[in-house]
Design a protein around this nucleic acid. Structure first.
Lengths: 223, 223
DNA sequence: CAGACGGATGACAAAAACGTCATGAACGGC
DNA sequence: GCCGTTCATGACGTTTTTGTCATCCGTCTG
């Protein structure tokens, strides 16, 4: 299990890093909000511990940005116990908070609780911009209206959504959706993208499927 | 979503019940620990809010008993903020705690967070006898070999498997898989069952789809 | 055992999904 | 602005999926 700690105060940061390491987690430490955000988006951490009082981008911003892109559990640390802070954090989607100074044991327990709760399960509901994709029910909606998709369309969209922001090559797509491991010269992917676009992009203002020239395609609201 | 509140103080209890109802949850209230434990074990609540200070069996005992039997998310309420109490609760497996007096908004937010975190997530992998159904990957296997299914076949099987052991009428099946809410006289269901059987039952020794005469169909290994 | 009811199935037809190809449009480098 | 490359799309044909129907079969009842 790997944890990212975003904390500007060196003392607290090192303390957390050391302590969590000793509790058996792989820990990375980011000293600024910007770094933290980048690291969180680059690597596949299992959980983030986030100080809300940061110079530069503040914790709230990070939380918002994080939530928008990934469904990572977040525990936030707040310096003083203001009810409004706590509520704000929870509203932004944090899973938990701790008030400084806190007991280290408690932090570890809370981390354990969150990780125990099967965070590591695969995601089955995605929301990007106004698009919602529910894997268990095989349903896709935009602006709340359901869009029926065929099998291939759903698989393709699921792949794009799962890897949102990543540019996926046609070969990658073909291998995942059609499971061709060889490199055939066909434009099935292009055609499939076209058909998918006709359903989930063309009728709407905001386009979510983007072409990455000479690479492939990518999905996201590009914010 | 349904919640069980275990709280002996009538005022707090009613307050919680009323408030949570207004927030859209179905709420039951237990006034003693014993009652609460029984209710929790009898009914399928999605979450428990538990006061640790109870006459008779105390909250800790309940939590222990609960944890032993069911994997229900528990939020506990503690009268005063003693670090040791908090740690004890978390160690016993609570998912969260609140210190009285607490903000109602915060309680609701915490409940939402826990429920969102998909503690009560739907199942996405089923195994019945040698059949395995993986909803996220849309894959079905028997004796380890994959059986490709069409959309309707998969939906039908998924329904049967989800409700294994239950006898489902054609009308129920039609309404869930085809979403017909009217009662048309068609035998699509029969035909679909036939096609499904051809794939997942006929090639194998053990039959899993059973007809329930003059009712409908049922799924299971009948053990 | 005959008849009636409910269920199973094979055959057919319509609809939907899918892949291929050829052509047209957009883009980037020069 | 020109040209080559890359992408988008319309059209077509094939395959698969799906629904309907008519007939056959099994089982329960009397």
């Amino acid at each position: 299990m790997s944890i990212l700690v975003i904390e500007d105060d060196p003392k607290t940061g090192d303390y957390l890093k050391k302590g969590l390491r000793e509790s058996g987690y792989a820990v990375d430490l980011a000293r600024t909000g910007t770094d933290g955000l980048h690291m969180a988006l680059e690597h596949a951490y299992d959980l983030v511990v986030l100080d809300v009082m940061l110079p530069g981008i503040d914790g709230w911003e990070i939380m918002r940005a994080l939530r928008a892109r990934r469904d990572l559990p977040v525990i936030f640390l707040t310096a003083r116990d203001h009810v409004s802070d706590r509520i704000r954090g929870l509203e932004l989607g944090a899973d938990d908070y701790l008030v400084k100074p806190f007991s280290f044991t408690e932090l570890v327990l809370r981390i354990r609780t969150l990780l125990r709760r099967g965070v590591i399960r695969e995601r089955d509901v995605f929301e990007i911009a106004d698009l919602k994709l529910d894997v268990l029910r095989r349903k896709v909606t935009r602006e709340g209206v359901e869009i029926p998709l065929t099998n291939k369309e759903f698989m393709l969209l699921h792949l794009l959504v799962r890897r949102q922001g990543e540019a996926l090559s046609r070969t990658q797509i073909a291998s995942e959706v059609w499971d061709m491991n060889f490199d055939s010269d066909t434009n099935v992917v292009d055609v499939a993208i076209k058909r998918l676009r006709a359903k989930i992009d063309h009728p709407f203002e905001k386009k979510l499927i983007h072409t990455v020239r000479s690479i492939g395609y990518t999905f996201g609201d590009g914010a």
